[in-house]
Design a protein around this nucleic acid. Structure first.
Lengths: 218, 218
DNA sequence: CGAAGATACGGAGGCGCCCTCCGCTTAACA
DNA sequence: TGTTAAGCGGAGGGCGCCTCCGTATCTTCG
């Protein structure tokens, strides 16, 4: 092996990543999100590259396999959802903040229509990804839930994990027709149920009623 | 348009399907089952054709799209599971028959490792398939359950749907490590719970205990 | 600022798979 | 046994995957 003078000196010195590389990576992710959501997970990677305005080689350097790309797109969206929770922490009404976040989460699932199969595959090969997202989402819910509890507006015996599990369970049926409005309705009922009952609860609900006969959690 | 004499006379007369066509179709299905289970759903259709010993054209005539093939393979296996229930109906011990069938179902899920993503995709585009398999499996469970109930060996307040749902729910975690033995254990406990308690229940259980501390349903 | 070197870019090209098409074969029927 | 519809096989055009390397661009350092 050849020894290069000064090698060790610079071994731990990290160079600032090139600006264009960072930019291109972001572009590809954005393009992939659009293309996959529209054309399903079978969509051509060349189409993604073209949409991102980069060469196919660039795409492959950043994401050596198709799964890598799926994973990165998904991870990014989970992070965005997590950041949304950060922002919502500064909202006035804690209960409303939680409600909004939950709705965004449902929307997130909805846009994943075509990707669900791909994600199932990816989750299988990388349980680290599953752990990461569970953790991130639990923390997001937790921060919103805690605030509502601290404000005395919600019962304290529900854990973030419980709520997340309920959310996922509800969304699990997301290939039935009309699932989305059904889930939104159930979430509203759920949040109502979480709330500590006061006179203020007579507040008007914005969601349109599904069926007049729909039972109300007491 | 040209009128062909006698066209109407034979319009409803159906010719017996050619023997080779039937044989080839079956061969392709068998090959597909093997190839997909081994190589995942991405496996090449040409490999399937080669393994089946037919030309690629033949494969495509029987199954115009990849999804058609997935669906047919899956359907066939559901049917086999259903037939197994038929056979088990003539077993001596109704409870044991049910237990055996449930185990076979778990095994069935286990062999679907690589296919689960593909199936998720197929289910999405063909909810008819989902309905078909739910129906078939419910009936299979029902026939076994009924017999056990009729024999006075099981409680009567559990519907086949409940049992199927429990089974599916348990298998839902089938990408965690060690899921299979866990599910088998839970099923045993479940069946025990279904049984009407008698002294005969002291019968030895064949499954090896997982943890000495495992709680028993009372 | 300019040179040097590291890093990233792009896309041509080889490869393998997808799927169609059509001339040949074979089974069913009379 | 002859007729004919049904089925068979696989060549071939096309497309997407992925690698490889000459070129371009960025960072660092003097």
């Amino acid at each position: 092996m050849i020894y290069i003078a000064g090698m060790d000196d610079h071994a731990d010195q990290i160079r600032k990543p090139r600006a264009d590389a960072v930019r291109n990576r972001e572009r590809v992710l954005e393009a992939a999100k659009t293309v996959f959501n529209a054309g399903g997970p079978e969509a051509s990677l060349e189409a993604v590259a073209k949409r991102a305005g980069v060469g196919i080689g660039t795409l492959y350097r950043h994401f050596p396999t198709r799964e890598d790309l799926y994973e990165a797109v998904y991870r990014r969206e989970v992070e965005q959802l997590s950041e949304l929770a950060e922002h919502l922490r500064s909202a006035k009404d804690p209960v409303d903040a939680l409600r909004r976040w939950l709705r965004s989460a449902v929307e997130f699932v909805a846009t994943k229509k075509g990707m669900s199969a791909a994600l199932a595959l990816t989750f299988q090969s990388s349980s680290e990804l599953a752990a990461f997202s569970m953790d991130r989402l639990t923390k997001a819910i937790g921060s919103l839930l805690d605030r509502a509890v601290a404000a005395g507006q919600m019962r304290a015996d529900i854990s973030p994990e419980d709520l997340l599990r309920a959310l996922i369970g509800m969304c699990y049926m997301h290939d039935q027709p009309g699932w989305q409005s059904s889930v939104l309705r159930m979430l509203d009922v759920f949040v109502d149920g979480l709330c500590i009952q006061t006179a203020a609860k007579a507040k008007v609900r914005s969601a349109k009623p599904a069926k007049p006969s729909a039972k109300r959690i007491r």
